[in-house]
Design a protein around this nucleic acid. Structure first.
Length: 579
DNA sequence: GCTGTCTGCCCC
DNA sequence: ATTCTGC
DNA sequence: GCAGAATGGGCAGACAGC
């Protein structure tokens, strides 16, 4: 199959909004492929050249691709940038530029493009960046314009086809069965091995029985089960009736595997996205080695924790443990513990099909309560009354935790699945507990993808520093905005556009908006937390960092009842931060 | 050897 | 992470 | 409700350029 044929199918998918129709188009395309092509096409559709647990990335994003386009089409980088701002998609820019050149290009086979992309991904070390840029430029020169569009998008990981893993899985079911009845089975196989290309190839080669060899194996990560959100204790009980309630800790999701190889105990840790974390947390590895079980797979939250005081360490510090160098030194400063909440495999036995209550019992027997080596079982309470849930929620929130997790006591462990078997109730979902600030818009940024048509995708929000008598930035906001609000905001901001940075406005150069505006429009911004910021200028004093909002979103656009003199001040932010 | 820029199916 | 949108 | 695609702050690491 030629790559441009694939590109034409992508183009058709992009124009389709009905998922049933997408599934139909996709499954017909898969039928046209040889098994090996299926494997490669499925990797490409997910923006990769290898399965996701293999750490081979392009290390090439918008800046590098812009350089490549400028080389390929002999343009100044600033011109490419201008086109990007205008079109909101570097794939479209590549197609546009390629179209202006001669049209007699041969294109290449899907397999050839795949290999070329793999080579680009594999460059590393000195001069690797220029090689990537040059190789992509040469590739684009030999491809038809429509292929250029999608090659660029594959590298950027933004195919924007409306196709994700779930739709691909449905299509695979259609390929072998003519309907989507195999979805559950394929889904489980995929989330157990985390290799969509392999699952696709096996299915095409051997049919459904090809999946039977895919089983849980310690040492190979499985996709973690995910949760839905709810807004109240009542909603949780109404869904689950009975629930196992646990505190929600603010750290990193972590899957721990232990097994025996050549008589030696082996341990591996994986992140939520199946990245290897093993070497970063030696104290957790040691703890697992000391446990009695020979082989197991468990799930938990890795969080900075001081055993002596029972104090949890904030996320911003915990995340510093995710590193390659100076591990022991950082481990001394920021000790972590793995707070486990699930057990999926124990001594040769797959436990994922057992009810959660039973898995939890086995977990509690595996890790003794007084175990002191960086491995603990999270506290659990099984309840059936709203007020019990509420009481636990209040307790956890008072203790400074994020909120709670509620889990169905009877549910199986479903890898990769996000449904209401697991529900999170976060502190910030309760309006009374969220941090809300009144800020002023200082400028805006062009949008990408589906926001291109509005000409805006985010805006910069400032607060007032009384001491310095200036506006300082505290957050960029690009979520919580409905489509008609985007239009309204853009219209309003364009009326007060300014062509230079005003005095009494303090913005870091990295955050400089595409369009600056006169500070006049007051907005309400909601956030989960106030954090110290290396970038935002709010409250910044010399070398001391400023403040920013964690997970900022628009609560209310345009508060005409408030003027700029009444917005939140730095002094107020500092009070909120200390609280 | 230092510093700034860019990247990450990053983490959240 | 949160949020919005089309189905 | 699902699935997908927009968007945030901020961390460490890799390179490139001086």
């Amino acid at each position: 199959m030629k790559f441009y044929q694939l590109a034409q199918i992508f183009s058709k998918l992009e124009k389709t909004s009905s998922r049933l129709e997408m599934t139909d188009i996709l499954h017909k395309m898969i039928k046209l492929c040889t098994p090996l092509e299926v494997e490669k096409v499925l990797y490409l559709v997910t923006g990769r050249v290898v399965p996701k647990y293999v750490s081979l990335e392009f290390n090439m994003a918008e800046k590098m691709v812009m350089k490549s386009l400028s080389l390929c089409f002999s343009l100044e980088e600033s011109d490419v940038k201008k086109l990007y701002k205008e079109k909101g998609d570097l794939g479209i820019v590549a197609e546009y530029l390629s179209l202006k050149e001669s049209s007699g290009k041969k294109d290449m086979l899907v397999n050839e493009v795949f290999e070329r992309l793999k080579i680009i991904a594999q460059y590393r070390g000195k001069e690797s960046q220029s090689k990537k840029i040059e190789d992509l430029s040469n590739l684009l020169k030999t491809l038809k314009s429509i292929s250029c569009k999608y090659v660029v998008r594959i590298i950027l990981g933004t195919l924007r086809l409306g196709i994700g893993e779930k739709t691909i899985i449905d299509s695979l079911s259609w390929v072998v069965k003519g309907d989507k009845s195999l979805r559950k089975k394929i889904e489980r196989a995929y989330y157990l091995c985390s290799d969509l290309g392999y699952v696709g190839r096996k299915l095409v080669e051997d049919g459904v029985k090809g999946l039977d060899t895919i089983v849980l194996i310690p040492g190979r990560p499985i996709s973690p089960e995910l949760s839905q959100r709810e807004k109240s204790a009542e909603a949780i009980i109404s869904r689950l009736k009975r629930a196992i309630i646990q505190p929600k800790l603010d750290g990193l999701r972590c899957q721990l595997h232990k097994w025996v190889e050549k008589g030696k105990p082996m341990v591996a840790l994986f992140s939520r996205n199946l990245e290897v974390l093993t070497h970063m947390f030696p104290e957790v590895v040691k703890g697992a080695e000391m446990l009695e079980g020979d082989s197991f797979i468990l799930d938990g939250e890795l969080v900075g924790y001081r055993e002596e005081t029972g104090e949890f360490i904030p996320f911003q510090q915990t995340i510093q443990r995710r590193r390659k160098y100076d591990i022991e030194k950082k481990a001394g400063e920021i000790p972590v513990s793995l707070f486990c909440f699930d057990l999926m495999y124990l001594n040769g036995e797959d436990l994922t099909l057992l009810p959660y209550r039973e898995r939890l019992n086995k977990l509690e027997r595996l890790i003794p309560q007084n175990f002191e080596l960086s491995l603990k079982v999270v506290e659990s309470n099984e309840v059936s009354e709203t007020k019990e849930v509420q009481k636990l929620f209040d307790t956890y929130v008072s203790a400074g935790l994020e909120g709670l997790m509620a889990k169905s006591p009877t549910s199986q462990y479903q890898p990769g699945v996000r449904n209401y078997d697991w529900i999170k109730l976060r502190r910030s979902y309760e309006v009374r507990l969220a941090d809300t600030i009144d800020g002023v818009i200082l400028g805006y940024y062009k949008g990408r993808g589906k926001l291109t048509k509005f000409g805006i995708g985010a805006f910069l929000v400032g607060i007032y520093n009384e001491e310095k008598d200036e506006f300082q930035t505290i957050a960029k906001v690009g979520t919580g905005v409905k489509e008609d609000e985007w239009e309204e905001i853009k219209t309003n901001l364009d009326k007060i556009k300014v062509d230079h940075l005003l005095p009494r406005v303090n913005i870091a150069k990295e955050l400089m908006p595409d369009v600056l505006v006169y500070p006049q429009i007051v907005v309400v911004i909601r956030a989960d937390e106030i954090t110290r910021s290396p970038l935002h200028t709010a409250g910044k004093e010399g070398d001391e960092s400023g403040f920013a909002l964690r997970f900022p979103r628009l609560e209310k656009f345009n508060r005409p009842d408030k003027t700029v003199d009444e917005i939140t001040t730095v002094k107020e932010i500092i009070e909120m931060y200390q609280h």
